[in-house]
Design a protein around this nucleic acid. Structure first.
Lengths: 399, 399
DNA sequence: ACAGGTTAAATCACGTCTCGAACTAAGTCA
DNA sequence: TGACTTAGTTCGAGACGTGATTTAACCTGT
C-alpha cells in the first residue's frame, strides 16, 4: 500500500539515473541513442545523466559502432571493475565464499567444509568471518558489500534472523553476529531466493519476469519471482516448497509434520528411501553428494539393487512433478526452474518423467504457458545470487 | 524488470496527486496537516495539489476539527458521489450486478439466475448487457467503469479472454463480446481476485499487505496478495488453489486430474461426497446452497445420516486445513481469509477444526506469523471487489 | 471588545529537473 | 572539398517541490 516513491525533482533524477544504470548493466554496451529508445527519456536528459555516471566512474566509454553516414555512436558500459562484491552460500553440506567484480565475474573463491555434517550456527560465524577476511584481502577495488544465502527462513527485524527449522537454527541472529567481524554492508536472504536472483539476472530466467525456482539439495526449497522481484510474505523469504503437504498422513518429515514433499524429494530423503527399499544395496560414501551419485549409477544397472534405485528415483520424479504441477496451477509462472546440487544431479535422467507428471497434473492453460527447465548457472548460483544483492542495491540507488 | 516510472516533472505531479488522493480515499477525512504527515510532502505542495483536487471536484471539504488555540484544520474527503461504478459477480450459480458510488457504497443491485445451472457463455453476454443497461439507467453520476469477476483464468491479450476449464469456458473473449454492448471501460478479473481486492480495501485484509484469499463456492479458487497488489503469473490470474494436488491418485476432479483439492472441498464435491457416503440421507433441494445448508443441518442430528454428514464435513475441514497449511508454508502470508458463499456457510462450524489442522501441518514460524480468518464482507465481496477495479485505476491516475 | 498568542493555509522566491529546439561534432559520400 | 547525415551538447522555457514568509482564522485573558 505504501509507496516509497519519488517526491521531489531530486528523487526523480535519482530514479532516472538508476533507470539508465540498470539498462546499461543488463543490456550490455549501449549508445546514448539506445538509451533514449530504451528509457523514453529525451536526448538532453540522457546526455546529462550519462555525464553524471561518467563523472562518478560507474560508467565508461566502450568504443564506438561503425558509422552509417553520420557521426558514430559511442558505446557506454558499466565499469565492472569499479567495485567488487562477495557472495556466500551457506549450504547444508558446505559453505562457499566467492568474490566477484561488479558484473558478477568470478575473481576468487573459497570452500569451507561443514564439520560433522551439522551446520552449527556458532561454528558458522567464525568460519565465515575468517573466509571474509581472506577474500577481502585480495580485493583490488572497494567492496560494495557481502551477500549471504542461507537455508531457512530469513526475517529482517530489522537485522536478519534465521529460522532454519530443518537445520536446527532457531531464530539465529546471523547479521548481528557477523557485524562484530566486518564493517561491510551485509545482505542476507534465503538461499533459494539468491539462486533465483542469479538465474533471473544471468541464467534461465533472463527472459521472463515471473518464475519459480526450486532448490533441491539436502532438502527442498523454492523461490517465487513475480514481476522480476522475489515474492515475500510476512517474512523476507517465502518459498518453503519442500513443506507442501503432498500425502495426507504420509512419510514423517524432519520438520515434524507428515507427508511433506521434502520427505520424498530432498537428497536426504532419497537416500533414506533407498536404504529402506527392498533389495537395495548398502552404500558407503563420504557424503550425500557421493551417495546420491551412486544411487543414480545403480539405476543404470540390472538386478534388485538397480530395481530399487529405479523405483526410488521414479517416485522422486513423480513427487517433484506433482509438486511442480501444484506450483504451476497455483502461481501460473512463466517458467519453473530446477536448481541446487541435487536437482542438477537428478534432472538429466529424471526431467522427461517429471515433465510428464506435470503435464498430467496441471491445468491445461497454465501448463501451456510454462516450461520446466534446468538451472543454467550450475552449483554456484546460490553464492553468485547472494552477490547480486549488494549490486541490486547499487542499481536501485543509482549511486 | 521494467519500471513504468516517472520520467518528468509532470509525472511526478501525477504521482503525488495520486498519493494524496489514495490517502484521502482510504484514511477518511483528513486535514492538510495530516496529509503532510502521511505523505512526506511539504505543506506548500499539499496545498497546491489539494487545490487541484478540489478544482477537479474529486475532493470536497468536510467540516473542520475543533481548534486548540489556533486556526482550525479543515477536513478534506473524496467526494464519493462524483462518480459511480458497476461491479459484476459472474458466479457458477448466479450473476449479480451492483452499482456503487465511488466509496463503494451500494446504490442498486440486480440478480440474474443462471439457467439450467450451466454457465453458457453465449447466454451470459446478453444477460450481462441487459443488466448493465438497466443499472446504468439509474445512475445519477458519470459511470467510471464496469468491473467483472469471473470464474476461471483471465488472460489479457490485450482484451480479456476467459479460460474456465471447470465451467466449460474455453478461451471465451468476454471483453470483446461485451464491447459490442457498452462504451463503458471494462475491467475483467478472476472472481477470487476481485473478492480479495474488496477484502483488502474494506474487509479482513485492511491492515495487512500480504494475504491469501480463498474463495469457496461450487469450486475453490484463491487469490494471492503481495505488497497490497494481486500476484499475477503469466496470465492475469494466478491462484488455482482448488487444483493443488493433495492426494496422489485421489478423487477424480472435474478438471480431469486426480486428487485435486477441489475434488474434496468445493460445494459440488462436498455434496457428491455426502451422496456417496454410507448411511447418508437423500437430499432434495432447489440448488447447491440449499443442499449444503441441509448437510450442515444434518450434522447437528444423531443417527447414520448425521454421522455421514459429520464425517464428510470433518474431511472437508482436514483438506481445507492442509490446503491452507500448504499456502502458509509456501507463501508465508500475513493472513489467510476464507470467503465465498460456501466458505461463509461452512466456516462457522469448521473453522476451529481447520485451524487445528493448519497448526499441525504448517511450519512453526510461518504459522506463528499468520492467522486464518473469515471474510468480513459476506457474499457480495466478489461484485464489490470487481467494482474496485475502475476505482483503483482512478486512484492510480489521480484524475 | 481587543490585543497577544497560536496554529493552519496560501503565497513567493528559488533551485532543480526534463524537454524541445538550436547548435556543434564527427563521420560518409560523391 | 563540400554537401549530407547522424550523434551528442547546450540553452532557454516550462513545471514542480521546498523553505521562508505572509495571511487567515481561531483562542485566551484582560
Amino acid at each position: 500500500m505504501t509507496d516509497e516513491g519519488r517526491r521531489n525533482v531530486r528523487d526523480l533524477r535519482r530514479a532516472n539515473r538508476a533507470r539508465l544504470l540498470r539498462q546499461l548493466y543488463f543490456h550490455g554496451p549501449l549508445s546514448r541513442q539506445d538509451l533514449i529508445q530504451a528509457t523514453g527519456l529525451s536526448s538532453a536528459s540522457v546526455s546529462n545523466v550519462v555525464a553524471d555516471l561518467l563523472d562518478a566512474g560507474l560508467v565508461v566509454e566502450a568504443g564506438a559502432v561503425e558509422s552509417e553516414g553520420g557521426r558514430p555512436r559511442i558505446l557506454l558500459r558499466v565499469d565492472t571493475s569499479c567495485f567488487e562484491v562477495i557472495g556466500i552460500d551457506v549450504g547444508e553440506t558446505r559453505i562457499r565464499l566467492e568474490r566477484f567484480d561488479l558484473g558478477l565475474g568470478e575473481l576468487a573463491a573459497l570452500d569451507l567444509p561443514v564439520l560433522d555434517g551439522t551446520l552449527d550456527p556458532e561454528a558458522v560465524v567464525p568460519a565465515i568471518a575468517a573466509g571474509l577476511a581472506e577474500l577481502s584481502a585480495g580485493a583490488t577495488a572497494p567492496l560494495l558489500g557481502v551477500g549471504i544465502g542461507v537455508p531457512g527462513i530469513v526475517q529482517h527485524q530489522p537485522y536478519a534472523v534465521i529460522h532454519g527449522q530443518t537445520v536446527g537454527w532457531d531464530a539465529f541472529p546471523l547479521e548481528e553476529r557477523l557485524r562484530a567481524h566486518t564493517r561491510l554492508p551485509l545482505f542476507i536472504d534465503n538461499g533459494a531466493t539468491t539462486m533465483a536472483q542469479a538465474e533471473m539476472w544471468f541464467g534461465a530466467g533472463r527472459d521472463v519476469d515471473s518464475a519459480v525456482f526450486l532448490l533441491l539439495g539436502s532438502g527442498a526449497g523454492a523461490s517465487v519471482i513475480a514481476d522480476g522481484a522475489p515474492f515475500r510474505g510476512s517474512t523476507t523469504s517465502a518459498g518453503e516448497w519442500g513443506h507442501l503437504n503432498v500425502q495426507y498422513q504420509g512419510r514423517r518429515c524432519r520438520c515434524g509434520a507428515r507427508g511433506c514433499l521434502e520427505a520424498y524429494v530432498g537428497a536426504e530423503a532419497i537416500i533414506a528411501r533407498y536404504a529402506e527399499a527392498e533389495g537395495s544395496a548398502k552404500i558407503v560414501a563420504a557424503d550425500e553428494e557421493e551417495t546420491l551419485r551412486q544411487i543414480l549409477a545403480l539405476a543404470e544397472e540390472s538386478g534388485p539393487a538397480g530395481d530399487a534405485a529405479r523405483d526410488v528415483l521414479d517416485e522422486t520424479a513423480v513427487r517433484v512433478g506433482v509438486g511442480i504441477a501444484n506450483v504451476v496451477n497455483f502461481l501460473n509462472p512463466q517458467r519453473v526452474i530446477i536448481g541446487g546440487w541435487a536437482g542438477l544431479a537428478l534432472a538429466p535422467s529424471l526431467l522427461p518423467r517429471i515433465r510428464e507428471v506435470v503435464r498430467d497434473h496441471a491445468l491445461r492453460l497454465p501448463y501451456s504457458l510454462t516450461s520446466v527447465d534446468l538451472g543454467a548457472l550450475g552449483a554456484d548460483a546460490v553464492a553468485r545470487g547472494a552477490a547480486t544483492l549488494p549490486v541490486a542495491r547499487l542499481l536501485e540507488a543509482g549511486a
